[in-house]
Design a protein around this nucleic acid. Sequence first.
DNA 1: ATTGGTTATGTTTTT
DNA 2: CATAACCAAT
Length: 780
Amino acid sequence: MSEVARLSAQEQGSRAMSISERAARVSRPTPSYLESLNPEQRRAVEAIDGPVLVLAGAGTGKTRVLTTRIAHILSLGKARPSQILAVTFTNKAAREMKERVAAVIGGQSEGMPWLGTFHAIGTRILRRHAEMVNLSPDFTILDTDDQIRLAKQVLQAENIDEKRWPARQMLGMIDAWKNRGLTPEEVPKSEGDYFANGKGVGLYKLYRDRLKALNAADFGDLLLEPIRLFRANPDILADYQSRFRYMLVDEYQDTNVAQYLWLRLLAQGNRNLCVVGDDDQSIYGWRGAEVDNILRFETDFPGATVVRLERNYRSTSHILAAASHLIAHNEGRLGKELFTDFTDPDEVPVTVASSWDSEEEARAINEEVESLQKKGASLDEMAILVRTTAQMRAFEDRFVTTGTPYRVIGGPRFYERKEIRDALAYFRCVTQPAYDLAFERIINVPARGIGQVSVRLVSEAARAEGIPMIAAATDLLSTDEVKGKARTGLAGLVASLERWRSQLDTMSHTELAEIVLEESGYTDMLKADRSADAPGRLENLKELIRSMEEFDSLPAFLEHVSLVTDAQGEAGGEAVTLMTLHAAKGLEFDVVFLPGWEEGLFPSVRALDENGQAGLEEERRLAYVGLTRARKLAFVWFALNRRIHGMWQSSAPSRFVDELPEGHVMVREEAGYGGIGSYGRSRFDEVETFSSSYHTPGWARAQRRREDVPRHRRHVPTTIDGELVAKTVTEKPSAYAVGDRVFHQKFGNGDVAQVEGNKLTVDFDKAGRKRVIDGFVTRV
DNA sequence: ATTGGTTATGTTTTT
DNA sequence: CATAACCAAT
């Protein structure tokens, strides 16, 4: 730990080492877990007190530092497991950290109740203090479907045309506010004006009121409400501040303003906050992440210890060089350069290849997979990382026909499948009779003669009386207002729900779940369904029941489901992994395939269109993340033609392909792989040629629509309490000026002739005039 | 009220 | 292309 950091920690009145602790430390032998760390990692681990910022490049042992740090704190006796707050971004990361901490300290990580995602920890805090934020402790967490349902109801109640102002868009707007930690009252005036003729903020308020009335929270609330709680109740905040002696945050570059505020409130106590992140891997800007949080850290926490981890243990030098060169094209960076001491004599440059179309791309990659497998590589060590989920289909088709085992991560999510949510809705109706959204979902599934008219009748009665819909339905049945089929159906459903509820205590939850699905007629409905996917759906339901066995009760299971959205790696044997680039962050493989490097797809036109330069840079970071997943081999691939919205389009190679460094790339030039002659081209003979991509009707429609939607939030500086919290990355002036004498690795010495951002035009003595990135020259 | 068929509409990434 | 929304017929 640096002297400065320790002094400043003491000055701030935070918990410093006692005399005895300091004396004891001297004679204690270096614990074995520290010995395997390099000096920088060790510095990051040992700087325990006071604020610490760890800038950790890809593959530099970031998770290792975090877990070792926890182990170190525990073994020094500085805190008990329950006094450490460790926050991650994804469930996957939380799971991994739990396992790794357990491995280091030996199985007691169960005792770390505060290790989890922001959302999980937020939920935990909220349940404890639910009354303080107008909820009851058993509040429900809404999924996206329910949110949309609710938003639609609000829009309908306000007589707003859902065509013109879709519920999705309204939710997007509200979510953006929540991500910035803003309640309706705090939203800057006029910000929601563009929506439904100035009703934006009002709708937020109504939506929020409805949530409270339903005793429900959406994902945004899990961050926003704890902030509100802490601000309104200094005593509660103080309690948590002293509880959490040490705080660690993973993937800090992905935090949004709400998360930042949440952390800042907690860290104002003892300031023992350690954040780990990599600005080059910030890929969630579209979701409200603020890279500026990481750039601001030293300002927020003066005297912070800053550690840079740049020694890479993962990839070959070719892969590192390719990734570094690519990312150097970004301007808004803190600037890190990965390096490795280790050079494998057999290492191979990054391969760049192209295919005629997306199907052939899948075919060629599949062949590559097979040939590597023949040479002894394991399928588990290969991954195909795509930009969009739509790209997965071609690979799946191919793998199925060739019988290559594969596993999809993060595709269509298990808990988001229709049959699963229907089943869950039934279960929720049993455990939480007041959860109207679930009731509405299943009221007529399977069809029991309750149409729109009857549903409206029930919901209006419920609204008028201020009671849950199930109760309102019971009341209505005692009158003559519902007749015929609807009456029989509704009466049957209400009676069944009642009966199941009474069985809650007398039978196991899995048994009850089966009974519910059986007696409701849901399984019968699927059995009668002759469509191709019906058997699969039944299978999914069985899988659902099976997964419930791990939990003690129905409510416990439902709680788990609402927070865990990823179907974790289905067991199975060896298989190639297929996933999005976003899902790949934090993982590594021996062999990585990066298909679809085409303009428009990657970088995505949408990112460019909506966020311009910042969007492009985020896409480039995504490419960087993709490359740095590879340990030994990386294949960059692009197709010359791709089907978009069902129409074949010709596509241009991604600009990222040409941003790779010549010396570390091997272009595959043979037209091998069965190729064009036998297969392909003829199919395109009748296809018209496109002067540029993106002329589909769908695209044209999308463009038209975009025009009348003001680009909110784009140019709005982020402020909280009038204080600037985060600014958008502005163009950083180059460190060089015209006339400077510079040296370039490849071109030698020269004079700067022109400066544009970070791009320099240099007149080199030998090589002549070249455009270069300023990161690649040094002042002479 | 349900059905089957048409047509409009949309696609990045995820807690 | 794939799904949601919509409409006419039962």
